[in-house]
Write a protein that binds this DNA or RNA. Sequence first.
DNA 1: TCTGGGGTCCTAGGACCC
DNA 2: TCTGGGGTCCTAGGACCC
Length: 431
Amino acid sequence: MPVFALVDCNNFYASCEKLFNPRLLNRPVVVLSNNDGCVVARSAEVKALGIPMGVPWFKLKDDARRHGILAFSSNYALYADMSNRVVEVLSAFSPNIEVYSIDESFLELSGFENSPGGLAGYGSEMRQRIADWLGLAVCVGIAPTKTLSKLANHCAKKNFAGVDGVCDFTTIPPDDLTKLFGKIEVGEVWGVGRKITAGLGAMGIYTVSQLRDSNAETIRARFSVVVERTVRELRGVSCIDLQEVVPDKQQIMSSRSFGQLIYDRAGLEHAVATYIAKAAEKLRAQDSLAGAVQVHIRTNIFKPEAPQYQRAITVPLPEATSDTRVLTLWALSVLRRIYRAGYGYHKAGVMLSNIVPRGSRQFSLFNTGGGAGLDCSEKLMTAVDNINQRYGRGAVRLAAEGVEKDWQMRRGNLSPKYTTDWAGLPVVRAK
DNA sequence: TCTGGGGTCCTAGGACCC
DNA sequence: TCTGGGGTCCTAGGACCC
């Protein structure tokens, strides 16, 4: 029987900010989404104030002033680097690890049952080492299925089982587990979102134990095979395997709200070209080609009083490619088709799809010797990627991206790249 | 003034094939 | 009077996750 651990960093983004800035100790800290839009991470102090996740920051300004809340713009360079360090530490605890998100990993732990202190002891060791080596707090949930390990992690965070940061379902007697599940709302279960919670409520299912003991066939008929799988996982039947190898992306998206509205087509062209460059870079990084490009543009949906317009078009390409120049030409031609003058645009984005590995390229029927041109294109793109990797994104780029990017997102309070940039290195002064 | 971004999986329904 | 059966592929839309 498999045993999974889910290791989840506490208040990850907010914790990363606190890590290198001693003035933030015991202060309420939030991290904002792109454009300094919504609250996407909260420190323990902020949670204690009852401020919910996802609220727009501008609606919190009064609260923030009153409670001295400090807000930071998202610093993904910092969070990604700290995330990699956490994974590196965890990798020593199991040969089988799935990096599930920037702050969560699943570990397969079968075979470690006999370590001192059992699995819970092993989990405590992980916790301790990450605290010692990185200064970050994590919680560990241990159980025979991934869904249950997520739930165990939830219990560890809430201190439900009276444990300190580690919760091991495998050693809790079945009756106690049932009692515990009777106290947890069904919406806490991994895979049960808002709609399904409402649907289950209509069937009289409100708690985790009720869902676990419901009829799997009925659940499948009413919802889908996905929810049925969740029910079985809650019963301890492992249906979702550890995914150790990250599969190639099937679609790559790049989109952003603008720091200020764009009215003219030129501005949108610059944005779309910029997003294509970013998406194409990701595409090449996984050694793939895209067979279709989508472009979408939209006005600000939060201002219904202003004239609204949105449109998206996908075009299939005659030949799959990863050449930024080719992708940009197609994207701009789509943009010309969907652009309408007279609107204030708030957001644009591109999506690359029909993605195939570079090795399985299908040439167009009328390609008359793309061989040499292809070779040239690949060399050029590799050179561009190398230069940009060394000197920073956008060091070389297409003129189509424009120069004055005054529409770029707002990041009013960005902390330094403490760990990935010499200029951001924290300085310690002796008194 | 101010409201994120990037994904996956599943299902239903339509087009089409023999 | 009476109009099959078994399939694949694609797309759009809806659900979920962080």
